[in-house]
Design a protein around this nucleic acid. Sequence first.
DNA 1: ACAAAAGTGTTCTCGTTACACCCATGT
DNA 2: ACATGGGTGTAACGAGAACACTTTTGT
Lengths: 235, 235
Amino acid sequence: MSRYSGQIHLLVAVDCIIFGFDGTDIKLLLVQRGLKPEKGKWSLMGGFLQPRESPEQAASRVLKKLTGLEGVYLEQLGAFGDPARDPVERTISIAYFALIDIHQYEKQLSYEYHAEWFHLKKIPDLIFDHRKMVDGAKRQLRYKAALHPILFELLPPRFTIPQLQTLYEGIYDTSFDNRNFSRKVLSTELLIKQKEKDKASSKKGAFYYKLDKRKYKANFQAFLNFIPNPDKLLL
Amino acid sequence: MSRYSGQIHLLVAVDCIIFGFDGTDIKLLLVQRGLKPEKGKWSLMGGFLQPRESPEQAASRVLKKLTGLEGVYLEQLGAFGDPARDPVERTISIAYFALIDIHQYEKQLSYEYHAEWFHLKKIPDLIFDHRKMVDGAKRQLRYKAALHPILFELLPPRFTIPQLQTLYEGIYDTSFDNRNFSRKVLSTELLIKQKEKDKASSKKGAFYYKLDKRKYKANFQAFLNFIPNPDKLLL
DNA sequence: ACAAAAGTGTTCTCGTTACACCCATGT
DNA sequence: ACATGGGTGTAACGAGAACACTTTTGT
């Protein structure tokens, strides 16, 4: 098979913006870069595209290497290809954002990569254009979550409605009326009430719910409207 | 400056999904591929990324080469990188979609590239994964247009509200109540009424409007809601 | 008993929808 | 005169927002 002649060939990498939610705060998983230049500075977890893998597969591989997790929600954010974005050598990076249940995250792996969770509002300086990627991911997550029930991916199998609300409030950096919020969420009929309560965060305790996975998948495309006044919130 | 050693280098291309609107139908601008393989088959207009240009610049360049237009609305759709997507040689393609005023399009250029406008519902077989790109672009356009006043980019400087409605109806493959539609559109105050009427499409004639560019830019991020029942329409 | 969070009920408002009707004009 | 789209008026409806109030239970 012939090749296209006379065209330049470039490095292609993937970078992952990994979101987690610890029940209170939304966090980002960052690593300390092992390669020069900028060795020791914080960065997104990434890796070069290998010969026989798709970008999506590469992102999954990178994600698994860092977190030990498979089958994670992963969505392409887009390609970043400014000629000067990597000072070593021109590299096109395809960014993906991932939503993981932070409790599933296998912490021991983090030592290998010097990984750490950072509060979304306390992101340190990042290498290259990773800051732009993070901002893009936040933005895309807001869009998507305003329309699709995507944030359940960040929660453990059992969660309470106040937890869910805290999550949404974190994403949109605002606060909602808890009474309207719970009614709105329940009206989707996506949640199955459990018998037990979570007593950690209040005296009364809040009932646990589980996601109805069947309905979740079936209705994923359906627009929800968890977010009051979406027009005011999305940038 | 050192390089990252031991990593493969790949071809990187851009492909443009070019939308146009002729007043009745939404169309896509396709070219007949000049390179082997699949020479003569229909394809998106594309090109390889050059050493000193960003993907965005490459897309603009490709777009200008085909249409003669600059300053066109262009948005990245994402990267397509399946290992087998191009049988000649592995190529990562970054897809962009463009919205152009079809009347500005310089037709003579089309001969050079054997370009033709195709009705959105009558797209011929396309090479590689271009069909997937087109589907993705349609989808993203629907999303974006449901939230932002983006479709004005497809219209000439002067247009009527019925034309605008036809455009929206084409994008969402449905029909709206014209009375509600015009009120909704006018309520945004994005349009400036002109004195002349377009008499081509009815006896009474419809007033021309111009876009208030200042308000358009200022309110671009604001969510509109041109689309009734958006949840039913977006796939 | 009290504090503190969870959750239910109720009202008001405003945007959406549906549809009757009038308007302007070419034939 | 009448057919054909363009456009205004209006009433009914329903989702969202605001908020008073009750529930539960640890201290």
